[in-house]
Write a protein that binds this DNA or RNA. Structure first.
Lengths: 240, 240
DNA sequence: ACCTTACGACAACGTCATTGACGTGAGAAG
DNA sequence: CTTCTCACGTCAATGACGTTGTCGTAAGGT
């Protein structure tokens, strides 16, 4: 075996599979994302990927060393899609908000991949572009470098953390997912007011709120706090 | 088959295994945590768990319906450990800060398990106690119920999101972990100032900051923003 | 038109979660 | 102290999983 994987730029022979498909890293990544989007959490296996591609499962290993290698490629693809078409407006707060929501949205669209990929540092092109963009927004806003870096770190990890958390909920097998949902109705809805006064008082609010993502609100909180730390409050008053 | 699992309080016959171990839910949970702590996340399989217990793998199914059921028990155990010995001080901001840091710390102590458990809603006793405590702190601070619930949601999910993200970094195999670390030195340290001015300007700061967790800073940002929304700013001015 | 070799296909291995059947010994009943 | 029964540990089997070694073939350079 040793080296099954030939680097993409050196590929020359593109033999079609039995079913007539010409494989490539890009096609495999796209197919994997589609697979996850259409058939949910547990659909991302090498065997099913092979079937979806119209190829033998082992053909995938001609393009990726293993599933982890494929996963990093998926991760960078997701970052790329999150950024696709984004332009800075010059309003740092609106820009960060948009980037955060885009990351979250891109990952929610492919929960199973997101769950596995959100915590990896790829160091690949799309990730680098995102880091540069976010740091650019913060430095242009007037934050000194050490604070810009700290805010960058908190902002990105908050986005990825929520993205992974919310993706995990979407990626659960349907049964476990329904059970998670039910918990807020059942277990928390039935607690007595004398033993659990605070839960009892807010149970309906809880059940409703926990169905949504907590990210948009958490993002706004973070941005509000960051705005309050801006050295010269440049024209935009903190939100009430 | 139908009902293999007998509820814990009704168990009477405790036959020892061939190797003389007397099983119980608690013993299985503790063994699972130890297994995961010693041999990594991928060591948590029913087969290896059986081996570590000194029992046939299928014996686990006498105590947990499936691996997901076991996972929820692990998750609740971690929440319980995070809360162990905590007492409210009456200072809502200090209390929330302490709870957040405790959650983060407890999960970092078992990164492999945290990674699997952080995103599950268990609805079990330890989790319920934590929810009640956090809601209590917020309502006592004077937040109206709808806002208390929203803040609870953002606070908890941010804590769990960071906990899972940081746990994931700790849980990587040493080689991959060093590689992830190296990315910030290597890939990001070498980018040219004319193509990536912002990364180039902050590369050493980035490399240093990304080695630590972004959570404490993000937590302080969230608490600062929350403090700014308190209806009557009760005695504690927002941090500068 | 030849030759090399990239790469798709096949078959196999070991591990996984899970289940049905079995039998044994602990504990209740008298 | 004996008997009964069923809880629960064990065994065997199933189908899906990732991954690898081997082989044949056709694509592309010469």
């Amino acid at each position: 075996m040793a080296e099954r994987v030939v680097p993409e730029p050196q590929r020359r022979r593109r033999r079609p599979t039995k079913q007539g498909v010409v494989l490539s890293r890009q096609l495999i990544v796209e197919t994997a994302l589609r697979l996850v989007g259409q058939h949910g959490a547990e659909a991302l296996t090498v065997r099913r990927l092979g079937a979806a591609l119209g190829a033998d499962p082992s053909a995938v290993y001609r393009y990726f060393r293993n599933t982890d290698d494929l996963l990093l490629a998926l991760a960078d693809e997701l970052i790329g899609r999150a950024q696709h078409g984004w332009r800075p407006t010059g309003d740092w707060r609106a820009d960060l908000r948009e980037i955060g929501l885009r990351i979250h949205r891109a990952y929610q669209a492919h929960p199973q991949a997101a769950l596995l990929a959100a915590h990896r540092t790829t160091g690949r092109s799309h990730e680098i572009r995102a880091v540069e963009a976010i740091l650019g927004v913060l430095r242009a806003a007037g934050f000194p470098d050490p604070e810009a870096v700290r805010i960058y770190h908190a902002f990105v990890d908050q986005s990825l953390g929520f993205a992974a958390l919310d993706a995990a909920a979407l990626a659960l097998p349907p049964a476990a997912r329904a059970a998670d949902d039910e918990v807020w109705q059942a277990a928390y809805g039935r607690l007595a007011a004398d033993t659990h006064p605070h839960i009892a008082a807010t149970a309906p609010l809880l059940a409703a709120d926990m169905r949504r993502s907590g990210y948009p609100y958490a993002l706004d909180l973070l941005l509000a706090a960051v705005a309050a730390r801006l050295p010269r409050p440049a024209g935009r008053p903190p939100r009430p």
